[in-house]
């Protein structure tokens, strides 16, 4: 017997290399499209997830082994092809790195989902689906679901300028009315999406619900636009998350003064009840660390190119 006194202290490194986990087929990227310098689309194959996904849900991606878990709202799913589509903005280290590394044929280390409560697609007569910037992608499945449910869909999408526009045609296909806005007026109405909402509200006095997805400041503005008329306004919140299964509480948000977890209680909430300032403050939680990570990553990229 090879055990001597004190041997228990250090475990030998020669642990049986037997495969611990069933090797899952890797999640493969089957399509990529670049909308602008910073916005890109990834479509990956996961037939089971495509079958289960519903509008409003999200996935958590770990792009590589040492990576972090990032939540991304599902922008589209194709049950026949068995694929899920994400539209991503390269803002932090992980999304920049993915922009560089993810190509058709490459794989993602881990994808889990769909997560979160699906959006409630009720039997509504008339809805306004509002997408601001990147938010156009996650609101699209809802617009489509409402349309397929027989609702009258008014689409309102907004971008900073013409060059950033994506999915205009795809979105328009499921809308009875379609309004596009841009901050600089280079396309559609000049102004924010709230101008589009106001226009829709002026033309229709029977709007049942407004669904708004985009940056928190834009969703806050949308909620304020509809508050006086009391039109139900759903927003999809994007706080910082770790596990996405309700276990860590990092994604806690204030809804009507009560604490809720966006990952399992949401991500959709009543926009009139959301404390957006709280959300925006909490999104700044890792600002310093994020900056450090991006700087370090940019340096390694440069060094990599130089060598």
């Amino acid at each position: 017997m090879g055990a001597k006194s004190g041997d228990g202290a250090v475990l030998s490194k020669t642990i049986d290399p037997l495969p611990m986990v069933d090797e899952e087929p890797a999640v493969e990227i089957v399509a990529r499209e670049d909308f602008s310098d910073v916005t890109y689309l990834l479509e990956f194959r996961h037939p089971m997830m495509a079958k289960a996904a519903k509008p409003g849900q999200f996935v958590i991606v770990i792009p590589r082994e040492h990576g972090e878990r990032i939540p991304l709202t599902i922008a589209d799913f194709d049950r026949d092809k068995g694929t899920i589509t994400l539209v991503i903005q390269a803002v932090g280290k992980t999304t920049k790195e993915m922009q560089q590394a993810c190509r058709t044929g490459t794989t993602l280390f881990s994808v889990v989902g769909p997560m979160g409560e699906p959006s409630h697609i009720g039997d509504l007569g008339k809805v306004v689906c509002v997408g601001g910037g990147l938010g156009v992608a996650p609101v699209f499945p809802q617009a489509r679901a409402f349309k397929e449910n027989g609702a009258y869909v008014i689409g309102v999408i907004g971008f900073r300028n013409k060059d950033l526009v994506f999915w205009e045609d795809k979105f328009r296909k499921y809308c009875d009315e379609f309004i596009i806005c841009s901050d600089d007026g280079s396309v559609g109405i000049k102004g924010l999406v709230t101008e589009g909402i106001k226009a829709a509200m002026d033309n229709h006095d029977d709007i049942d619900e407004v669904i708004a997805i985009g940056p928190p400041i834009m969703m806050k503005a949308c909620a304020e636009t509809t508050r006086p008329s009391g039109i139900k306004t759903s927003v999809s919140l994007n706080p910082i998350m770790v596990d996405g299964t309700g276990m860590c509480g990092g994604c806690r948000v204030k809804i009507g003064g009560k604490m809720q977890f966006a990952c399992v209680d949401g991500p959709d909430f009543d926009g009139h009840q959301v404390d957006f300032d709280d959300l925006m403050n909490r999104l700044k939680r890792f600002t310093e660390d994020e900056k450090l990570a991006v700087e370090r990553w940019t340096e390694t990229c440069r060094a990599g190119k130089a060598s």
Binding site: M20, V21, D22, E24, M48, M49, A52, Q57, S110, V111, V112, G113, P114, M115, G116, T245
Partner: peptide, 10 residues
């Protein structure tokens, strides 16, 4: 053992 599988949702 199948990882990355959220039962209830998948």
């Amino acid at each position: 053992i199948k990882c990355n599988t959220l039962v209830g949702r998948l």
